[in-house]
Design a protein around this nucleic acid. Sequence first.
DNA 1: TTTGTTAGTAAAGCTTACGAACAAACAATG
DNA 2: CATTGTTTGTTCGTAAGCTTTACTAACAAA
Lengths: 385, 385
Amino acid sequence: MTATQPSHGRILRPTAKVLPEHARGHNRSLVLQTLYRQGPQSRADVSRETGLTRVTISDLVAGLMQDGFVIELGQREAARPGKPATMIDIDRAAFQIIGVDLSDQHMRAALLDLDGTVLERENADRAGRTGDDALAAVVGLIEGLVLRATAPLLGIGVGSPGIVDADGTVLTAPNLAWTLLPLQAMLRERFDIPVLVANDADVAVLAEHSFGRASGDVMLVKVGAGVGAGLILGGRPFYGSHSAAGEIGHVVIGTDGGPACACGKIGCLEAWLSVPRLTEQLAATTGTEAEQAAARELILREAGRRLGIILAPVVGALNLSEIVLSGPTELLDGPLATATIETLRKRTMAEFTGDLALRMTSLAQDDIVLRGAAVMVLSGQLGVS
Amino acid sequence: MTATQPSHGRILRPTAKVLPEHARGHNRSLVLQTLYRQGPQSRADVSRETGLTRVTISDLVAGLMQDGFVIELGQREAARPGKPATMIDIDRAAFQIIGVDLSDQHMRAALLDLDGTVLERENADRAGRTGDDALAAVVGLIEGLVLRATAPLLGIGVGSPGIVDADGTVLTAPNLAWTLLPLQAMLRERFDIPVLVANDADVAVLAEHSFGRASGDVMLVKVGAGVGAGLILGGRPFYGSHSAAGEIGHVVIGTDGGPACACGKIGCLEAWLSVPRLTEQLAATTGTEAEQAAARELILREAGRRLGIILAPVVGALNLSEIVLSGPTELLDGPLATATIETLRKRTMAEFTGDLALRMTSLAQDDIVLRGAAVMVLSGQLGVS
DNA sequence: TTTGTTAGTAAAGCTTACGAACAAACAATG
DNA sequence: CATTGTTTGTTCGTAAGCTTTACTAACAAA
C-alpha cells in the first residue's frame, strides 16, 4: 500500500525524472567521495563503506580509472588473511584547480591540487580598478596560473563580492562596479574549462565545511570591507530565492540607533562591524596606553554585542549549532567574539542553543576563499566535497 | 572528463547509494505528483509533463492502478484528432487521512480526503489535561475518526506544540507536560497505520505551501499561546540540526528592554506577541471609545514593529521573499501586519527584499494544522505535496 | 597440508527505461 | 466517401545498471 519511503528527511519532493544513469552518476560520485574523504583503501573497503557490492564498485572504479580520476597504488602492506587487497585512491596529482578570491582589494588567485593544497600563487592589487579593468586583471591572474599548471585543469572557481546568481552572473558588486556581469560564462568562454563563480562568503563557508570541522548547519560571517555571510543548511549550501542569502550587512541592529551607514540607514551591521569602521574607531582612541586598551576593548565588545543581537534571531530560526567568524583575527578573536557568544546565549533559548559554538575559522584567513573555490569546483565536477 | 553534472543547485552531496529501484520510486511519485497538482489527464499528458516516455508512464500507471492510487475516468470528451485519450487521475476517494492539531487548548482532529478537504471533525477541550491524560484524549479523538472513516486510511498526521524530532518524538512540550514522548511510535503501535508527528508550525507551513500560494522559500509565523515559526527553504521543510528550527518565541527583541517573559528573560518575542499577552494588553485600555481604539492600535503597531525587528535579520540571512502570518485575524491582520512589513522594509536592504511579501495565511485559521498534517501524510506516503 | 578468509572477477538474471513499430480511433480534407 | 494525418496507448526488443551466485587467486593459521 505504501508507495515510497523517502530515505532522507520526511518529505520527498520529486521535481524531475530520474533515470538509472543518474543513479550511476550518483554512485560514481559516492565512490569518489569515499576515496576523497577516507583516503587510500581497497575496492572491498569502498564496497563496505557505500553498501554497493564489490562487483559494482569494481565496475565503477574501472570507469574512474579510465577517466584518470582513480589510480591503483599496489598491494596493501599490512599482513592479513586472505588475498592481499589492491589499494586505490583518487589520483590527487592528476588534476589541478584554479581558485580566485576577489573579496579584497588584494586580488588573490592560486593553483591548487585536488586536496585543496595551494601549489602556486598569483596576486595583484586591484589598485582602484573597477569594471572592465578589474575584469582584465582577473583574467590576467588566471592566465598566469594556467601557464604554470602541471596537470590538466579540472576547473576554475571564483569567489566574488556582491550578489552572484546560480549561473555565476554577478548581479551587483559595488566595490568592483560590476552589474549583471556574466563572469562565469565569460571565463568559461575565455579559458574553455568549467568555471564556477559564487559569492565570496558562500565560497568561504564551503571551505570551512569541507576542510574545517564540519557540521550539518553552519553560518560563516565574513568580516572585511563589508560584512556578509555564507550558509550551509542541512549539509547543502543555501543561496536563497534571489541568490542574496547571507546579505546581512545592511540589516539594522537594535532599537537604539547607531552609526550612519553608507547605504543611508542608521545602525546597519556593516556600520558597526566592517574592518574599516572598526580600525578607524580603534585608531581614534586617546589617552594613556591603559586607557586606550580599555577603550579598544569596549569598542570591540560593543561590536561583538551588536553581532550577537543580529545573529540571535537567525540562530533561533535556524537552530544553528555552529557559527564561524572569518576576518582579521586581531579584531575578531577576542573581546568581540566573546561578546558575541555571550549576547547570543543571553538572547536565545539556552535549551536549544546550549551546544551553540562560535569560533574563528580553522583555516588560514588568506586562503579560505581560494580553497572554497577549489571545493566548489570539486563539487561541481566530481560531486566531491 | 567531467564526471557528474548535478541537476539541482551547484553542489551534489552523495551520502547513500542509489539503486534503479529508487529511481523507480521517485518517478512513481513524480507521476502521482503530476496528477495531484494538475488533475485528470491522459497518460500521454503525464508523459509530456514529466519527460518520461509514454511506455514508462503506462507501466508506472499500471502499478499505481494496481495499488489503488490511480483510476481511469473514461475517454476525454473534447473532440480532437487522433485516438481518444483515456483520462486518469489519482483516486481521491480511495484513501482518507486523519489530521490532528494539538497546538491549542481546543484539540482538533479531522478526517480528510486526499485533496485536504475536511470530511469529518472530532474536537475536544484539553481542559487542563496534560501528560498521559492528554495522550489518552488524543487517542480518543483519533479512535472516533477511525470508526467514521469510509475509505482505507493512508495515515495519521499530528501537529504538536513543542519540539518534535525527526522520528516524531516530542522532545519537550511544556503546555502538554510532555517530555521525550515517542508519540509517533506510540500512535503507530496503537493504530497500525503510518503516523507522522511534527511541530505545529512546521505542519502549518506545509499546508500553506501546498494549498496556499506557494513559493520556494516561506516562513510561517504562528501566533497563539506561544509564538513559533515553520520554514520551507528551497522548497523543502527545514527542521534544523536539533529539530528546533523556527523556535523564535524566546529570542529577545531590540535593545531597549520590554515585558518580562515566563522564561525569565526580558523582551522575548512571546512576551510581546503571544495571543494571551496581546488580548490582556488590549483589554487593559481605558478612556473613551476613541481613546481606547487609538491605544489598541498603538499596542498592535508596537507588537508588529517588534516582530519586524526580529524578522529582519532572518529575512536578510535567508533572502526570504514570503512571510505568512497565522493566528487570530482580528489581532494580526491590520496595524500589526502593517507595522511588521514597514519595519522589515526599513531595516533590510530594499534591493533584495523589494519583493518581500507579508500576508495572512490564505487558509482557514482553524484548519491549517489539520490540512498540513494531511500534507505531511501525503508527502510521506505518496511523495506528493 | 588443510582449513578458512578475503579480494576481485565472471556469468546470469532482474529491474528500469528507452526507441521503434503498430493498431485503434478520430478530424480534416478533397 | 475515401484518403491523409494526428494522437493514443501497447507490444517488442534493447541497453544500462545493480544484484546474486559462483568462481579463482592469494594468503594466514593450525
